Simulated scan of single mutants.
Amino acid sequence: MIRVVIAEDQQMLRGALSALLKFEADIEVLAEVSDGKKAWEVIQSKRPDVCLLDIEMPFINGLELAEKIRNAKYPCKVIIVTTFARPGYLQKAMDAKVDGYLLKDEPIDYLIESIRKVIKGEQVISMDLAATLFMKEDNPLSERETEVLRLAKDGLTTSQISNVLFLTKGTVRNYLSSAIQKLESESRQQAVNIASDKGWI
């Protein structure tokens, strides 16, 4: 029996996935949760064989969760299930050594077959995404620029960012200006949008 945990913040999709997987004689759904924090608690307590993780979840996103699972050396297989075909996300997933990276518009049969494949040690990537692996675009942002843009994405002002990172407002403005130049954008918001689209923040 393949024991599965589903972590997906969209209730309808989470329920549908769970219901469909329960029809499979060799798959047991241990838990279905709506955020990364609950997922991490369930993974630690129930030690599933496979985790199906959405990327954009509250508290801990799917990629961060994949890294936590790997760092804890849990043997469970990780399949990212997402709507995002962004090269940056895919590269982060590969860096986190995930076992599968599937788009949500794949047929359910493909997902079920992928669960069985990763248990056997295979890696599964949606066909539509395979080409993006060869189009890797290096992130030009420094760690600090990425941090500042991520906080800007969350809606924080320059003053709030400076408080969070213990930097002067001038330093924060310099990091923002540098990020805007590197991304060849015209504003803070445009820089945030570009970095988000590429999966860098």
Score class of each variant (00 low, 15 high):
M1A: 11
I2Y: 09
R3C: 05
V5P: 04
A7V: 02
D9R: 03
D9V: 09
D9W: 05
M12A: 12
M12S: 13
R14I: 07
R14V: 02
L17W: 04
S18W: 00
A19Y: 02
L20T: 00
K22W: 06
F23I: 12
E24V: 07
E24Q: 12
E24C: 09
I27L: 02
V29M: 01
L30Q: 05
V33T: 01
K38D: 11
A39D: 08
A39Y: 00
W40Y: 10
S45R: 13
R47P: 06
P48N: 03
V50F: 01
L53W: 01
I55F: 07
E56L: 13
M57L: 05
I60P: 00
I60Y: 03
N61C: 00
G62E: 08
E64V: 06
K68C: 07
N71V: 14
K77C: 04
K77S: 02
V78F: 00
V78Y: 04
V78L: 01
V78K: 03
F84E: 14
A85W: 06
P87C: 03
P87N: 11
G88E: 09
G88N: 09
Y89Q: 15
M94V: 11
A96I: 02
D99L: 01
D99R: 01
Y101T: 10
D105H: 11
E106A: 04
I112H: 01
I112F: 01
V118N: 07
V118F: 06
G121K: 02
E122L: 11
E122K: 11
V124M: 05
S126E: 05
D128E: 13
L129A: 10
A131R: 15
A131S: 14
T132K: 11
T132M: 12
L133H: 09
F134W: 12
F134S: 15
K136E: 14
S142V: 10
S142T: 11
S142W: 10
E143V: 14
E145N: 04
E145G: 00
E145V: 06
T146Y: 08
E147H: 11
E147A: 11
V148Q: 00
L151I: 08
K153D: 09
T157L: 15
Q160E: 13
I161T: 03
S162M: 04
N163Q: 12
T168V: 10
G170M: 11
G170S: 15
V172S: 09
V172D: 05
N174V: 15
N174H: 15
N174C: 15
Y175N: 11
Y175W: 13
L176D: 06
S177I: 10
A179N: 00
K182S: 02
K182F: 02
K182V: 04
L183D: 01
E184A: 08
S187G: 05
S187A: 06
S187I: 08
A191W: 00
A195R: 05
G199T: 07
